[in-house]
Amino acid sequence: MTPETILVQSLGGLARAGVLFMLAAGLTLVFGALRVINFAHGSLYMVGAFVGATIVLRTSGNFWLALIAAPLVVALLGGLIEVSVLRRIYRREHLIQLLATYSLVLIVGDLVRLIWGAQYLSISVPNIFAESVQVAGQPLPLYNLVIITFACVTAVALWALFYRTGLGRDIRGAVSDPEMLGLVGVNVPALFTAVFMIGAFVAGLAGVIIAPSTSVGLGIDVETVVEAFAVTVIGGLGSFVGALIGAVIIGQVEAFGIMWVPRAALAFVFLAMAIVLGLRPYGLFGEPER
């Protein structure tokens, strides 16, 4: 294997990592603050992709509008879900929460089919990103770099939100001690709604970002959420840095794994998860459960 191959292969893996990170960040944020495993995270991502693609197709190619509007729509949907469903079951067991979010997967999946039909959608990469760039003498899609950049921007923005704003301080407070937060006068229900909407927004953003490089169809909700879930677990549930590192690991494992053992492609994610959890039972950056 030549150094060029390794470079190209790892860049492909990094683009995948970008998308996985954007999904895992939302999952881990919601788990960290709300202690809810949101199975329906993939559904939010799917809605983002469908809404985004529809906007682009209806406005004859306005990707930027989609990039703003679709995540907002998803955030609103997230807010609705938080207020009408999750808020009522925070005090329940994890399993009941899982049952609720699982039922949301079924509901949203069929609603998307009801609204958009079975037809898959496809939008083109925006013109300015449609070029290829030369890396090590090989053309690479410029859009991959765009995805990586967007993931980095998202990471920085979330970091700034957590560590440079009052809202972020409250969220961190919620992660470490939600009861304390109520005592010091923070409106905890509103905070939780905000957190869930931020998670939904990022999921919707990931959906729009991924849309130009793939087909938007039924089934992408479950397909992707399992991998994002694995990333979150490997990094450690609730850990933001963990989601970042986990995404990079999974991206690279997939990229190089298929070169050596193509037939095991299905298992890479779970093998990585089993190995990491076998070595570190709480994930790389996770903490023992309270």
């Binding site: 294997m1 030549t2 191959t5 190209v8 292969q9 492909g12 893996g13 683009a15 995948r16 998308v19 090989q138 991959n144 991924i210 793939t214 087909s215 089934g219 992408i220 397909e223 992707t224 997939e254 990229a255 190089f256 298929i258 070169m259 193509p262 037939r263 492609a265 299905l266």
Partner: peptide
């Protein structure tokens, strides 16, 4: 000279593509 088998419903083909080209 080689085979790749992405799962049904895969959305990410980057690594498969570069592996084939290599």
């Amino acid at each position: 000279v080689g085979e790749q088998w992405p799962k049904l419903g895969e959305t990410n083909y980057q690594s498969f593509i570069t592996a084939i080209l290599a």
